[in-house]
Design a protein around this nucleic acid. Structure first.
Length: 761
RNA sequence: GCGCGGUUAGCUCAGUUGGUAGAGCAUCCCCUUGACGUGGGGAGGGUCACAGGUUCGAAUCCUGUAUCGCGCACCA
């Protein structure tokens, strides 16, 4: 030991001398007799407390007991006498989980928080329903299945759609037991008897009738619009499924008659016969809107038309551009405004069409260079910027650049739906936690655009509609009856598209409860809390509000509770390519589910992302062990003593401790009611460990050894009562270990902890 | 460009209506205690991003700046 250490050691020793004295005192109390007494007491408790807590074996047994009791089902709770028949309902609809997937950290958080809310409200006496659901996860699952087909040497394009659908259905249903057992592993007390799947017949029926109703109310129309098309997956995407990627590419300046136009995509330029400039651009003032100009272009002379439009950024490039309405959304919008022709240049597989002349049939990847070479020999290349940085939109699955294409699609007019939703949000009928999401939602709703609900994938809910190829009209046809177009008389064909998955999941709350006639709908709708990821606030939450209001006239839920992302221990987003994906089941195996749940919930404020570290979870594993040992001490010290419900003869000191506990429980209840779960969990942890165990238990040793019979009786009741309240209050957070310890609580007439009462006092 | 957040102890974050800051982990010291060493006792560590303002009093309210995220819309 060096000098400085010795010095600090000195001062510490001085300070500690008092402590060690009091330690000696405690030792004096201790004696062989005390030890003998303890051994005798320990012999009287369940031997399981003499071994460390074993989550693995306990959790499975406890969950089986809960499930067997049927009490995840609110009706069964009434039968069991745990819930009053006329109790106020409490409902959470679980965000449907990918039926084909496996549990990831985000699910872990969802299951922990929603189960905690569910258990809390069940213990508060509410008629509590947490309705679980599985998602067919449209494109996601189809891609997984395609990979499987690939391994078998097949492709989905050679399988008839109906057959493919059935195959994917089999595949999904076979795998769905996996995710369900993983949800059980998390301790989820959801009502499996009411489980729903997004492709269940009754769900589809509800979705169909909403579709029809939208048509009847003139909120549905068919239109030709630009969609983002993946040439590899042969489908269009929503913006959600597109990944922006920054690339450095060549930027070409091409001579287009008297103008120089800039482009990164010469392969789209064959059909460009409109040249657009800003109406206020003085440089081009001599050209008039609609004026024709003859010029030499890629495959020979063409006649171009001048278009003046304010969408043009005068400061960008030369301030002039040609447009390709079929393959660019901005160009499409300009063409729509001015009523211009739109021509397809690139086919659905990314190959050039006959309009490209010599280049027809060539893949766009190869065509670009070839076209530039040709333009160079014709002297039409002004200059090339070799290092132009821009953003390209790619398929989030395969990274292929998505090609905008014009497709006929179904659209919903969103403005009227959004206005209703805005009204309800403004009056506070839907409340957001954290509340700034209200602003975000309002902003989005106020600027809403029409919603394209057609998707060109097989795995999903087929759109019940007929189409006319001739006049491009569409008709909703739920019964599959329509044969000819009522406008032009031609034969109709079935719409081969499926619904955007958010269109059906947007109806999830009322569809799962059996709108309009099912008793559950009447009992449990509107639901209380929608707990989900902040990420999908627009795609899902806002649409549920709009569709829920539209269909049922009532908001689908009163509170939106949004959790943040679960990140790795370093605060980085988890991704397979970074090898930092945390598997929740590894953590539950290592630390126990209760510890994992606590690690996710304590200190995790809504809307804020959470860095998930093993250190934190390990803390709560230690806490579980602490609880276990508290049980061992309390049960051993109080062996032979029953918990007396209305015990009155507390000593003065114990009365103070009891009041202190009351204050805390009141405080925690208020936290629970106001969605401050992260605080409630922390306070409970702190109280159980640092007040109950460190202070109350420690001083009890002396009292139980040397106190008067009255003091001893009082203290035993205080220990039992306090521990009992701790277990009740911790149960929503740590359901397994609390239930297990509860089973040994010396309390007459007790039920399973799951359906016991929350300790208000 | 428009919108929304964050910036507090070495790290991860709390701080519920304004009253001179807390937790967990980490660090250091002490304790072979009889529920638990997955333990117990103790200690150090923060001008609460910055600058103004309101107030008797600001981490907290207002204004501005910096900086880091995120979302939406986008440049041909």
């Amino acid at each position: 030991m060096n000098e400085s250490q010795a010095k600090t050691g000195d001062s510490a020793t001085n300070r500690d001398s008092d402590v060690s004295k009091s330690g000696d005192k405690a030792k004096n109390i201790g004696s062989d007799a005390f030890k003998a007494l303890r051994d005798k007491q320990e012999a009287s408790i369940s031997p399981k407390f003499l071994k460390p807590y074993d989550p693995a074996s306990t959790e499975e047994r406890i969950y089986a007991m809960w499930e067997k009791s049927g009490c995840f089902n609110p009706d069964k709770c009434i039968e069991a006498g745990a819930t009053k028949k006329d109790a106020k309902p409490f409902t959470i609809i679980m965000p449907p989980t990918n039926a084909n997937g496996s549990l990831h950290a985000g699910h872990g958080l969802v299951m922990s928080i929603e189960d905690m809310m569910t258990r809390y409200n069940r213990m508060r006496g509410r008629k509590t329903l947490w309705l679980p659901g599985l998602d067919h996860a449209g494109f996601e699952t189809q891609v997984v299945y395609e990979k499987k087909l690939e391994k078998e040497g097949r492709t989905r394009f050679e399988i008839e759609p109906k057959k493919l659908y059935e195959e994917i259905m089999d595949f999904t249903m076979t795998n769905s037991s996996n995710i369900k057992s993983q949800i059980r592993k998390m301790g989820a007390s959801c009502d499996w008897s009411r489980e729903k799947f997004t492709l269940d017949q009754d769900i589809v029926k509800t979705v169909y009738s909403t579709f029809k109703r939208l048509e009847d109310d003139k909120l549905l129309y068919r239109g030709k619009r630009i969609v983002s098309w993946c040439p590899r997956h042969q489908t269009s995407f929503s913006d959600l499924e597109i990944k922006d990627e920054e690339r450095i590419e060549e930027f070409y300046y091409l001579k287009y008659g008297p103008f120089v136009i800039g482009t990164t995509r010469p392969e789209t330029k064959f059909g460009d016969k409109y040249v657009v400039m800003h109406p206020d651009d003085k440089r081009y003032a001599k050209y008039k809107d609609g004026q024709k100009i003859d010029l030499e272009w890629i495959n020979g002379p063409i006649t171009a038309t001048i278009v003046k439009d304010e969408a043009i950024d005068m400061a960008f490039g030369t301030g002039v551009m040609t447009i390709t309405p079929w393959h660019d959304p901005v160009d499409f919008a300009i063409a729509e405004r001015h009523g211009l022709d739109k021509e397809q240049i690139i086919d659905e597989h990314g190959k050039l069409l006959p309009i490209a002349g010599d280049f027809a049939g060539m893949h766009i990847k190869k065509a670009r260079q070839a076209i530039i070479e040709k333009l160079m020999t014709k002297g039409l290349v002004d200059k090339i910027d070799p290092k132009y940085k821009h953003v390209v939109r790619t398929c989030y699955k395969c990274g292929t650049i998505v090609e905008p294409q014009i497709k006929s699609q179904w659209f919903i007019r969103m403005k009227p739906l959004a206005e209703k939703a805005l009204g309800k949000i403004k009056t506070g009928e839907v409340k957001y936690i954290p509340d700034h999401y209200e602003k975000i939602t309002t902003y989005w709703l106020e600027n809403i655009v029409d919603w394209n609900i057609s998707r060109q994938i097989v795995w999903g809910i087929p759109i019940p509609a007929k189409l006319c190829n001739k006049c491009d009209k569409g008709f909703v046809d739920l019964e599959d009856k329509l044969k000819t177009c009522d406008s032009c008389g031609s034969d109709l064909i079935r719409d081969g598209d499926t619904f955007d998955t958010w269109f059906s999941s947007g109806q999830w709350p009322f569809a799962t409860l059996g709108y309009p006639d099912n008793k559950d709908f009447k009992d449990f709708y509107p639901t209380d809390v929608m707990e989900t990821a902040g990420e999908i606030i627009f795609f899902w939450v806002s649409r549920m509000i709009m569709l829920g209001l539209y269909v049922t006239g009532q908001v689908p839920f009163r509170t939106v509770y949004l959790h943040g992302l679960v990140l790795d221990a370093k605060g980085q987003k988890m991704s397979k390519s970074k090898f930092n994906v945390i598997n929740p089941l590894d953590l539950t195996a290592k630390f126990g589910t209760d510890a994992f749940r606590m690690g996710l919930m304590v200190g995790n404020t809504p809307g804020t992302s959470l860095a998930l570290s093993e250190d934190k979870i390990s803390t709560y594993k230690k806490f579980a062990n602490k609880l276990w040992n508290i049980a061992r001490f309390v049960y051993a010290s109080c062996s032979g003593t029953e918990l007396i419900q209305d015990f009155k003869a507390y000593s003065k000191a114990d009365e103070i401790l009891r009041n202190e506990r009351h204050t805390l429980m009141t405080d925690i209840t208020s936290d629970m009611e106001n969605f401050r779960f992260y605080l409630a969990g922390e306070k409970l942890y702190h109280y159980a460990w640092h007040q109950f165990a460190d202070v109350i238990l420690e001083q009890s040793k002396a009292i139980l050894a040397n106190g008067t019979p009255e003091e001893i009786a009082s203290r035993k009741q205080l220990l039992l009562h306090t521990f009992e309240k701790i277990l009740r209050a911790l149960h929503p957070f740590m359901p397994f270990i609390t239930e297990e310890i509860w089973s040994e609580m010396p309390l007459k007439g007790k039920r399973m902890l799951m359906i016991e009462k929350w300790p208000i006092l």
